[in-house]
């Protein structure tokens, strides 16, 4: 049993007042000192290796950093990221709104979409799109079970790049749908009610009242998704799209300098990720209009 009396008992008579005139000392933390020594050792050794291990081939890194094949691959990576995210966002918005519909069929279909695209690996989905021509050799415009007006060879219409875009974008749509839905749910129902009671349509209410306020909840995870997408695009090498990683591989397949070239690719990825992180924090500020924490309540 805890004996409070004994524990907190202080002999007040015994020069206690002189103790109160000096600053209080912190508890000693020997464990922390050991941890700091270990971490320092690891960091210093790591940095030392970076400079002394010839395997890193910093000279080669410098030589290939601005190679046209690397920059060309980089461009493809950026294109894939941007287009896939746009498709993902639009699909996600539509699926999220369907998911919240009061019609059971729309809810069911959007639920199935999310279930399917989140339930299978992206790598497998990309391979599927790459081999789409096997499943649908031709693509046409027409009425199902009825006449077809125009028809193309699938491989002509859906290039490998197109397949990559579809694979990445549709997969992203499923994740984005959940992010958007969380955002829409974060706006209190009273906001929509106020707008509807003024005579605004459902669509206007969504556009002018709900979405602007949902954005502050949506943007942080979307930022994550963009950053994640930038790196996920490297999966498209399985269907042979010439992105940053693919071109990197092409170069080291010839000169066998794998490590330096992978470092080149990594530096580019990390550079772009850093830029995206900065853009994200800018956007967040922009969409936090009216946020009590930022405005402060001092003016009341």
């Amino acid at each position: 049993m805890y004996n409070q009396e004994a524990d907190s008992a202080v002999d007040i008579d015994h020069d206690f007042l002189t103790l109160t005139t000096k600053p209080v000392l912190r508890r000693r933390r020997p464990g922390q000192i050991i941890a700091v020594v270990v971490v320092c050792f690891v960091v210093v050794y790591g940095v030392w290796t970076l400079f002394t291990n010839p395997g890193f081939g910093w000279g080669t890194v410098g030589k290939y950093f601005l190679d046209t094949r690397i920059l060309g691959g980089l461009l493809i990576t950026l294109e894939l990221t941007v287009i896939a995210m746009i498709i993902g966002f639009v699909v996600g918005m539509v699926v999220a709104v369907m998911r919240m519909s009061d019609n059971w069929l729309l809810r069911g279909v959007s639920g199935a979409y999310i279930w399917f695209f989140r339930g299978t690996p992206l790598l497998v989905q990309l391979l599927f799109w790459g081999f789409a021509a096997v499943l649908f050799p031709t693509i046409g415009l027409g009425i199902p079970w009825g006449p077809t007006f125009v028809e193309w060879n699938t491989n002509d219409v859906i290039s490998l790049f197109g397949a990559a875009i579809l694979g990445l974008g549709l997969n992203e749509g499923a994740y984005m749908a959940e992010i958007v839905r969380a955002g829409l749910l974060s706006v209190p129902a009273g906001q929509s009610e106020a707008s509807r009671s003024m005579g605004f349509s459902q669509l206007h209410t969504l556009r002018f009242v709900v979405i602007p306020q949902a954005m502050k909840v949506i943007i942080p995870p979307v930022g994550n998704e963009v950053i994640s997408m930038l790196k996920t695009t490297s999966l498209v090498i399985v269907i042979g799209v010439g992105d940053l990683l693919y071109n990197t591989q092409q170069i080291y397949a010839q000169n066998l300098k794998q490590i330096p070239l992978l470092i080149v690719a990594s530096i580019w990825y990390i550079l772009l990720t850093s830029i995206l992180t900065m853009v994200q924090s800018r956007l967040e500020k922009n969409y936090s209009k009216g946020n009590a924490l930022l405005l402060g309540k001092a003016q009341r």
């Binding site: 209190p188 009273g190 906001q191 009610e193 106020a194 707008s195 306020q213 209009k289 009216g290």
Partner: peptide, 9 residues
């Protein structure tokens, strides 16, 4: 409304 429901943004 009871809870005002002003548009927060």
């Amino acid at each position: 409304f009871q809870s005002f429901n002003l548009f927060g943004h």
